[in-house]
Each structure stands twice: as structure tokens, then as C-alpha cells.
Design a protein around this nucleic acid. Sequence first.
DNA 1: GGAGCGATGTCCT
DNA 2: GGACATCGCTCCG
Length: 213
Amino acid sequence: MARHTSCAQASIVPRKFYLKAPDVVARKLLGKLLVRNSKAGEPIMGRIVEVEAYFGEADPASHSFPGKTARNAVLFGPPGHAYVYFIYGVHFCLNVSCEPDGRAGGVLFRALEPICGLEAMAKARGLPTPLAGARALANLTSGPGRLCQALGVTRVRDNGADFTAPASELQIQDDGFPVGDVLVTPRIGISKDAERPARFLLAGNPFVSGRRV
DNA sequence: GGAGCGATGTCCT
DNA sequence: GGACATCGCTCCG
């Protein structure tokens, strides 16, 4: 199976892309590139293959449901910024804010297809290198906690970062990848509004996460 | 290979 | 004090 493996930079997705409702943004984010630029060496890059939409103050499953607090302020701010939170005492999760400034909404990154910087990802994940087999490759970034670890995402380092700034370490880029069929399912790991279809993934992609269906 | 469960920080009631 | 947008290990089949 031939897979895109170029480390070439593509065009940054502009801020207006994130102005729309979270489910619209989530679906359109599939196939885009999530990039961690570093001053030394090649970037770490993965294609977005699975996301979830969180709808702000109207959505009981969203962190913004209780209203604006110090913790979730980024979700209420301007679109295109990184909201990072710590969960279960163990893992970080990464979102991008959407909707206009003053309105909450976000999209959670759940899984990437590793494209570039695979050795760096494995090192960050504490996995042995070289990577052996397709399974080890999928293990790098299939899950919200895993992809944060692979990209070195932490709350201190990245919360509030601007995905649209040319000088930003974290960016979302568009290389024109042709997105095929998109599946929509309920979100994973939540207890409130658990039936609502708001998880978007690329059909047939081997890098998606998820144990519950 | 699948179900069960412990780890463990931070926020909010 | 409890819930939590998870992961990886154990145990059992």
C-alpha cells in the first residue's frame, strides 16, 4: 500500500476555516496535516484521520458546558487555537477551538496517520526503534492521549497556541489530500449525550482508534 | 483477543 | 470528594 510520506510543508489552514460549527469544522479537518515544527531537524507530522466535535455551552459532554473558567478559556476565545487538558491523571488531549471569539466550541484530535518524524514519535512514546510492522506504526498516534505524547503536546507548552501562525510550533496544514468516505459515529468515552453522532473518521483507515463502537 | 481495572492530576460541587 | 473527551497491563478464555 503506497502511502504519502513526504515531510514537505503545505499551506497553513487559515483562521476563517475554524469559524463554523464544531461538527462542520471536524468533518473538514479530516485529511489535513497536524504538524509539530521544531527548530532542529524535520517536523513531526501526521494526517488527521479521526476527530470529535464538542459543541460548547449547549453540549453536556463538552468542557465548556459549565461556562467559562480559567481551565477552558481557550474554547471561548478566538478560533484556531489549541486547547490542551490533562485527563485521568495520566494523559493530555488536544483540541482546536472553533466558532467566533466569545462562543465556545472545539474539535478533539483522536487519531493521526504518522507521516513524518516517525522515529521522534516513537522516542516520545517510549517505544523501541526501529518500528517493526504496521501495528507498531498505528500504535504511535491512534488515540487522543497517544498522539499528544507522540507530538510532545503538554498543557504548559501548548495550551493557547495558535494553529494558524506561520511561526507557530503547532500548525494545521492542507496538502490537498483527497478525502474519501467519512463515517460518523457517537463519541467515545463520554457518559452524557453518549448517543449523539459527533465522531468523524476516514472509512477504512487503519490508523483510527476506538474500542467502543 | 477481549473484558476488567488501576494509575493519578486537575477542576468543580 | 467525585468525576473525568485514556492507556496499557493483567487475567481469562
